[in-house]
């Protein structure tokens, strides 16, 4: 919940206070935060004594439980959005091309 409040504050500041030329700097800020979060996740996992043992013992089963649900989610979302939302997407692309 609190992250949504922070994001809403960001939206208001982005809408009313941030100049257009700061767009690139803001993109770098979000990339830097992402890399730091992934790095921190790596540190947590790497320092867990059981992590690598679990990965080798249950790796293949876990991989299946990642792969199949993810692929089916992608497939269903693609089919559903192509059928129900694609028109908007192509409209948006059309508008972008005109600009």
């Amino acid at each position: 919940m609190d992250i949504l409040i922070v994001m809403c504050v960001g939206i208001l500041i982005g809408k009313f206070l941030v100049p257009k030329k700061a767009k690139t700097a803001n993109e770098y800020l979000s990339l830097l935060s992402t890399f730091l979060l992934i790095f921190a996740m790596g540190v947590t996992l790497g320092s867990d004594d059981n992590f690598f043992a679990e990965l080798s013992a249950l790796g293949i089963t876990s991989f299946l439980f990642f792969l199949i649900p993810t692929v089916l989610s992608i497939l269903l979302v693609y089919l559903l959005t192509r059928h129900f939302m694609q028109k908007k997407d192509s409209d948006a692309q059309g508008r972008a091309e005109k600009k």
Binding site: D2, I11, V18, S33, L37
Partner: peptide, 23 residues
């Protein structure tokens, strides 16, 4: 500093994403 402040980094990320949306 990084691994002890992941909540703050996530806030920073969401703030930055918010700015992108707001712009």
């Amino acid at each position: 500093l990084i691994s002890g402040n992941t909540d703050l980094i996530l806030y920073l990320l969401m703030f930055s994403v918010g700015i992108s949306i707001g712009m």
